[in-house]
Design a protein around this nucleic acid. Structure first.
Ligand SMILES: [Zn+2]
Ligand SMILES: [Zn+2]
Ligand SMILES: [Zn+2]
Ligand SMILES: [Zn+2]
Lengths: 549, 549
DNA sequence: GAAGCAGGTCACAAGGTCAA
DNA sequence: TTGACCTTGTGACCTGCTTC
């Protein structure tokens, strides 16, 4: 963890700092990972796209020489020579040349100049895909011990519960999951509020369905209450997507959500993003792999219940990860049981399926936050408010801890006294601190950074925050979290735990779901976030800010 | 103390954090399409006007660098390097530079600021034209697939041109199409000649209108020049009927032709056939099916431009038929677009409509021939003479090869030494033979044969021709045909095809087509024609008619 | 104020160099 | 012969200015 430090940063200092930072950027840019898939010829680290193929420097030079010489791709040993990384790639130049040619290297495949956005994206996507495939392999390799009979039991259990919650969903919540987000498209605020009144109880019940499902999994029940709460909080949106994934429509531009056909344009409008709409539609392609049967969807839901990569506050992360492996093993067993031939393919598809659902859920969470901000005085149920609002905190945390901390560690620790965070986060930071009755002290300076090498942030504004302030903030947020985060959620989970395990926990009636209205003072501050952006530039961070603790 | 240090945040972190996804805003910005023709230098996607030429970013940058360096346009390899899209454009910078200069790129061609409307329109027009040409190529390559958007464009195009030629027709040729044939009813030869002098330029212009219309159809332009000429020649009379079909009159025995009401008796007298007059009048009944709107008539004209069943010398008959299908498909789409319920009924009506027009046109062609024969020394425009006269040849050929030859086969071959041909053809035969410096031998016996199976020739006079003469004749006619048929027509068509690909070809403008405008005063004498409808005499065919060719 | 272009920038690849 | 490193040309994207 960080040590508490307090450094006064004047505006001029920050200006200087910024100038320096640009030179830093250059020095940092020499090292940045190009993020390329490995050399297609030998598997070594690729240096770029050469003659139309991602290859290493060695293979690039080799091919250049090969095409300018009279080297033939005919191997005297028959052509079966393996071309792999290291000195082995030089074992047979004929076969190396042949492999280059077979993979499509050619002088008229040359690409000059910069990458365009799509090309870069392709590379990044492929690296990610490879990484995911690697992960899937690892998981398959180190499986937890569980008998087939037990796995059958697990599958039966989850299938049964899946059918139950699906039935409940049909009875009480006919509308597809995107209905909530349609509220944004309603013409006036009155109607939007009315839409909320309809939707919010459904959302609340949805959360309870998720809890009910998770609680039927024995290993889930054995986790600490905090961990159960955290897992449900972090995976709830994904769960909701996976519970009823879209099915292919009659036409290419249509998909069926909960029985309702809808066009991609409509979804794009509702979700306010064409990219996400396309990803959502792509989920329907998994329908043909059997991702529609209760057994398979139930198992996939089971897997998703144990995704720990978004969780930050787990009492026993290792245990959760083991459970996750277990569920994957059960899914693999199910695939094997149902379709022996395609197990590995189906596992791959599952990985992709979950990954895509995750991307989509990230977006949906943002939309939910917008709702919270737009209607801070709406009588949100405690449970919903807690879970949704907690996401905001988590988002900040994730931002700060996972990325900033990472970056800070790569620099000399004692040379750092400030970080640049997105303006928006700075505002949230301050608000959260205020909530915690803390003092927000010190100075902030906003600037634009248009030369950022990452495309998506080129128009974004940054705020420079003294590091100590951030550090305290993170600790504060963490400490507070351990005390009383997710009380409502824990209570709900617990109340379902007490039920007789032999008879599945009852899903409460709709009437019971709406809690008494609350005065969400905490949320008020979120309302004017956008307006406060200006203040940040001028307000001073107080040096004397010392956290209690 | 600590030194200042900034740490930049990674892209993913910021994207996750950004609630109002900026990518949405960008996707909104993405929608306005530049819509430009491809790079003139390399053919890649152009980004705008650079140094006076539509080029891609690459060629723009290249030229900028070239003029600021000591690069010469002298190629060491002789200058024949092809500069095309992709990595090939970098194969020879000298030639690339030379091509830039040759195409007129230069520093003083630069233009800053906005497009004016006209140049933007030029660009859009050219892109559309190129797209359509692409489509036309596709059609040629056997794929008759066409999108609705493309069909809409075709319809717009044809409707627009239909309106144009209709306007032109109104301005220069107020008289109905049958006015020409009224010449036969003029009392003396002097007036008939005068009538011809008035009518012939109008007919000439009419032909050019047809050419102008046909040339706007992209798939038509893609046909070989010979095929274009042949189609226009064979379908011109039909086109003329379809362009302004009669409209229902106030009474049953009246019809309105180009605004002039006329009785069926009068038409029968003019066309020298009551049967044809009735058929012509029947066309007016299609008025109620909507065969009066520019969209529909335009499309029907489009269909009629590709009727290949009267053509004998097509380079690529299959392609023409494909085009015909395409036009029918577009017409069908139009019907569907305008009136979903009656599509098949309307299509049936179209077929009938076209068939009846065809019958009528067969008759009108005969009348035109009579004119040619009656006034062989009239200064017929080359174009008209060629087209009209060629019809005679064609008619002879068709008659002879398709029908007579058929007759011959059904008889014992060695018992035949003569066949019966229409008298008219016999005359032509002799003329053609004379032209070809052949000997016309044998005797002719004239008789009438009203039982000929072809409707159009049932009232015609026949002559008996020795077989060997006919055979020689046919062979001669075929040989000559392939060499220099329709030179004038081809020239006219070609003159409307702008060959320069870099400047957008103009859609043929009718005003360019007419050499000397006709004084509308001349049209006055046509009024007198109405009164002189009494003398319908079958004038004798002149055997001594020798065509100048 | 939007559209549009010249010029700048720098990520990118081809090809050259040279020590191993 | 190989491959790490360097030089040079390229082009996707951006900025600032002009024009409408
Ligand atoms: Zn390699
Ligand atoms: Zn080998
Ligand atoms: Zn170009
Ligand atoms: Zn050259």
């Amino acid at each position: 963890m960080f040590k508490s430090r307090s450094v006064k940063i004047t505006k001029s200092a920050i200006q200087d700092n910024h100038v320096e930072s640009s030179s830093d950027k250059k020095s940092m840019k020499k090292s940045p990972k190009p993020l390329l898939p490995p050399c297609r010829v030998c598997g070594d680290k690729a240096s770029g796209l050469h003659y139309g193929l991602n290859t290493c420097e060695a293979c690039k030079s080799f091919f250049r020489r090969a095409i300018n010489s009279d080297l033939t791709p005919k191997c005297p040993k028959g052509g079966g020579c393996k071309i792999v990384q290291g000195s082995k790639r030089n074992s047979c130049s004929h076969c190396r040349y042949k492999k280059c040619l077979d993979l499509g290297m050619s002088k008229d495949q040359i690409q000059a100049g910069r990458y365009n956005a799509s090309r870069r994206k392709e590379n990044v996507e492929e690296v990610k895909r490879l990484e995911r495939a690697e992960m899937a392999k690892k998981v398959a390799a180190e499986s937890v011990k569980i008998s087939e009979k037990e796995m059958d039991e697990y599958i039966d259990l989850m299938t049964q519960k899946f059918n139950e919650i699906t039935e409940d969903r049909k009875r009480y919540n006919q509308c597809p999951f995107h209905a909530l987000y349609q509220i944004f498209n309603l013409p006036d605020e009155e109607r939007q509020r009315f839409g909320l009144e309809v939707m919010v109880p459904l959302k609340d019940r949805e959360l309870k369905r998720i809890i009910a499902f998770a609680k039927t999994i024995p290993v889930f029940r054995e986790l600490s209450l905090n961990d159960q709460a955290e897992l449900i909080k972090q995976n709830r949106v994904e769960f909701q997507i996976l519970h009823a994934p879209p099915q292919p429509g009659d036409t290419e531009v249509e998909c069926v959500f909960s029985g309702n056909a809808i066009t991609i344009d409509a979804i794009a409008a509702i979700l306010q993003s064409r990219d996400i709409a396309e990803k959502l539609f792509h989920l329907s392609t998994y329908h043909s792999y059997g991702f529609k049967y209760p057994e398979i969807l139930g198992c996939i839901l089971g897997v998703s219940c144990f995704s720990s990569d978004r969780c930050h506050k787990l009492d026993d992360r290792r245990r959760v990860e083991k459970c996750h492996d277990l569920m994957l093993q059960i899914l693999q067993y199910l695939f094997k049981r149902e379709d022996k031939k395609n197990v590995s393919k189906l596992l791959m598809k599952t990985t992709d399926f979950l990954y895509e659902a995750r991307i989509i859920s990230d977006h949906l969470i943002k939309l939910e936050h917008s709702l919270l901000k737009k209607f801070p005085d709406f009588p949100w149920p405690n449970l919903l408010k807690e879970v949704w609002f907690s996401d905001l905190e988590d988002q900040l945390e994730r931002l700060s801890l996972n990325n900033l901390q990472n970056q800070i560690e790569h620099s000399k620790p004692d040379c750092i006294n400030s970080v640049i965070v997105p303006k928006e986060s700075a505002v949230k930071t301050r608000n959260i601190l205020r909530e915690a009755r803390s003092q927000f002290e010190g100075s902030c300076n906003s600037n634009t950074d248009s030369t950022a090498d990452l495309e998506s942030i080129k128009d974004m504004e940054f705020v420079e925050l003294p590091l100590d302030v951030l550090e305290n903030l993170f600790r504060k947020s963490n400490d507070a979290g351990e005390e009383k985060i997710s009380r409502e959620l824990c209570d709900t989970i617990e109340s379902l735990t007490n039920a007789n395990p032999s008879s599945p926990p009852q899903i409460p009636d709709l009437d019971d779901l709406i809690s008494s209205p609350i005065s969400p003072l905490q949320l008020d501050i979120m309302k004017d976030l956008e307006d406060i952006l200006n203040d940040v530039t001028t307000s001073n961070l107080d040096d004397d800010y010392v956290s209690h603790l």
